[in-house]
Deep mutational scan, measured.
Amino acid sequence: MKHYEVEILDAKTREKLCFLDKVEPHATIAEIKNLFTKTHPQWYPARQSLRLDPKGKSLKDEDVLQKLPVGTTATLYFRDLGAQISWVTVFLTEYAGPLFIYLLFYFRVPFIYGHKYDFTSSRHTVVHLACICHSFHYIKRLLETLFVHRFSHGTMPLRNIFKNCTYYWGFAAWMAYYINHPLYTPPTYGAQQVKLALAIFVICQLGNFSIHMALRDLRPAGSKTRKIPYPTKNPFTWLFLLVSCPNYTYEVGSWIGFAIMTQCLPVALFSLVGFTQMTIWAKGKHRSYLKEFRDYPPLRMPIIPFLL
């Protein structure tokens, strides 16, 4: 059985960083990364991007050496992705923050609204209902991160945790300040508006959870398998008939419901920014589905049925 020789060059300087002799033909890129780490321990596998061309796409960890368009002496180019952190850690951090930050404003801890309001309670029912909904949303997200989601990528750049936390924590503080303010004004149409908004919120939260469970069942634990998601017997998953990412559709719907319930401008802005970002993600995933699966359902749109 022939063996391969693998040289790894710096993608920027073309400097030879490592030479691997007698590499098995069936070795994966993940195994080559581990061998590279032995000579350069500062670059652990998650930091490494190996590619066939200095400006090309990163090879997948599961790619097999003998199936790549290389000879028995293969040249790979290395790029440092920077310090990495696990997706689970990032999600837990960015979701735990809003949960606790919101509660600080809800309980009106000292130095927020003035001494005479310390630890007082709002007289408006919608304020307490909003706290329950907000807390439920982020507790749900935390539990899904721990027990439901299966991540195709193990890590992301460390800098992302600061960007994500600034976004989630900042908006949580902004909306919580106004919703729990002693001078907060309840919704214009009173109980009817709150009940309608609560119904929207609850339905969308159930829908979002149902989609996450359906997506989880598509991917076996520990794998990166991708399949076309289809509706199940659960009615909340029937939205798969019309959109590629109904989890985002339901998520946006939840925040629209919360915005109607609280009639709070920061919540509306958070919903708008979230919708914009999720639309970008949904379009990317939709394109990926179309590219990977020739039999992908043609009627589906990325996030909004028939429109977007």
Rank of each mutant, 00 (worst) to 15 (best):
K2A: 07
K2N: 07
K2C: 07
H3G: 08
Y4N: 08
Y4L: 07
E5A: 11
E5Q: 14
E5R: 05
E5L: 10
V6W: 01
V6R: 08
V6M: 13
E7W: 00
E7P: 00
I8G: 01
L9W: 08
L9V: 04
L9T: 01
L9R: 06
L9I: 02
D10W: 01
D10P: 13
D10E: 09
A11M: 11
A11N: 04
A11S: 11
K12D: 14
K12T: 11
K12G: 01
T13Y: 02
T13P: 07
T13M: 11
E15K: 10
K16Y: 10
K16H: 13
L17W: 13
L17S: 13
C18Q: 07
C18K: 01
F19L: 10
F19M: 07
L20Y: 14
D21S: 05
K22P: 12
K22G: 05
E24F: 13
E24K: 09
H26G: 02
H26K: 04
A27E: 13
T28N: 11
T28L: 04
I29G: 03
A30H: 07
A30Q: 01
E31Q: 13
E31I: 13
I32R: 06
K33A: 12
K33P: 01
L35Y: 09
L35E: 06
F36T: 11
T39A: 12
H40P: 12
Q42R: 12
W43R: 10
W43T: 12
W43N: 04
Y44P: 04
Y44G: 05
Y44V: 09
P45T: 02
A46Y: 13
R47V: 13
Q48L: 07
S49C: 01
S49D: 05
S49G: 02
L50N: 01
L50G: 05
R51S: 05
R51E: 09
D53N: 13
P54G: 11
P54S: 10
P54V: 00
K55V: 14
G56E: 00
S58N: 02
L59S: 05
L59W: 02
K60G: 10
K60R: 11
D61Q: 04
E62W: 00
D63N: 13
L65R: 04
K67I: 13
K67Q: 08
L68A: 12
L68V: 07
V70T: 12
G71S: 11
T73L: 13
T73Q: 01
T73A: 11
T75M: 05
Y77P: 15
F78G: 00
R79I: 13
R79C: 13
L81R: 09
G82M: 15
A83H: 15
A83N: 02
S86L: 00
S86R: 02
V88N: 00
V88Q: 01
V88S: 13
T89A: 11
F91A: 03
L92N: 15
L92V: 06
L92H: 01
T93V: 12
G97E: 05
L99K: 03
L99C: 10
L99E: 00
L99G: 04
F100L: 12
F100T: 00
F100Y: 09
F100N: 10
F100V: 10
I101V: 09
I101N: 03
I101D: 12
Y102M: 03
Y102I: 02
Y102L: 02
Y102Q: 06
L103E: 07
L103R: 03
L103H: 14
L104D: 13
L104P: 11
F105R: 01
F105D: 14
F105S: 06
Y106V: 00
Y106C: 04
Y106D: 03
F107Y: 00
R108T: 00
F111C: 02
F111H: 15
F111M: 04
Y113T: 05
Y113H: 08
G114T: 01
G114E: 05
G114D: 10
H115N: 03
H115I: 01
K116V: 14
Y117S: 13
F119C: 14
S121A: 13
S122W: 08
R123K: 08
T125F: 13
V126T: 12
V127L: 06
V127E: 07
H128D: 02
L129I: 04
A130E: 14
A130D: 02
C131I: 01
C131D: 02
I132P: 13
C133I: 01
C133T: 02
H134F: 07
H134G: 06
H134D: 00
H134L: 05
H134R: 03
S135W: 03
S135G: 03
S135F: 00
S135Y: 00
S135K: 02
H137K: 09
Y138S: 00
I139T: 09
R141P: 02
R141H: 02
R141L: 02
L143P: 05
E144D: 06
T145K: 06
F147S: 10
V148E: 02
H149F: 04
H149S: 03
H149E: 01
R150L: 08
R150Y: 15
F151Y: 09
H153G: 15
H153L: 10
H153I: 02
H153R: 05
G154R: 11
G154L: 05
L158F: 11
R159S: 08
I161A: 14
I161L: 14
F162W: 01
K163E: 09
W169G: 09
W169V: 11
A172F: 01
A173E: 01
A173F: 05
W174Y: 09
M175S: 04
A176S: 09
Y177A: 06
Y177Q: 08
Y177H: 07
Y178K: 01
Y178W: 04
Y178N: 07
Y178G: 04
N180L: 03
N180V: 12
P182I: 04
L183V: 13
L183I: 03
Y184P: 15
T185V: 04
T185I: 13
P187F: 06
P187S: 09
G190V: 09
A191I: 03
A191E: 04
A191V: 11
V194L: 10
V194E: 12
K195V: 04
K195I: 14
L196H: 07
L196V: 06
L198N: 14
A199S: 05
F201K: 05
I203M: 08
I203F: 05
Q205M: 15
Q205K: 02
G207L: 03
F209T: 01
S210F: 11
I211S: 13
H212D: 03
A214T: 12
A214R: 00
L215H: 15
L218P: 06
L218I: 12
L218S: 11
G222V: 07
K224N: 11
T225K: 08
K227M: 09
K227N: 13
Y230H: 11
P231V: 01
K233D: 15
N234M: 04
N234Y: 12
N234H: 10
F236I: 09
F236R: 06
F236L: 07
T237P: 07
W238E: 14
L239Y: 10
F240C: 08
F240P: 14
F240I: 11
V243L: 06
P246A: 13
P246T: 04
N247R: 14
N247P: 13
Y248L: 15
Y248R: 15
T249D: 14
Y250D: 13
V252W: 15
V252R: 14
V252I: 15
V252T: 05
S254I: 13
S254V: 15
G257R: 03
G257Q: 08
G257V: 11
G257L: 02
F258L: 12
A259D: 08
I260G: 05
M261S: 02
M261G: 06
T262N: 12
T262E: 01
L265H: 09
P266H: 06
V267Q: 00
V267L: 06
V267M: 11
A268Y: 13
L269M: 07
L269Q: 09
F270E: 14
F270V: 04
S271C: 09
S271F: 10
S271P: 10
V273F: 07
V273E: 11
G274D: 03
G274R: 03
F275Y: 11
F275S: 07
T276I: 08
Q277W: 13
M278S: 00
W281G: 03
A282E: 06
K285N: 09
K285Q: 10
H286V: 05
R287S: 06
R287C: 11
S288C: 09
Y289D: 13
Y289V: 00
K291R: 11
K291V: 09
K291D: 00
E292M: 10
E292D: 08
F293L: 10
D295L: 13
P298R: 11
R300C: 02
M301S: 03
M301I: 06
P302A: 09
I303H: 01
I303Q: 02
I304T: 07
P305T: 03
L308H: 08
L308P: 10
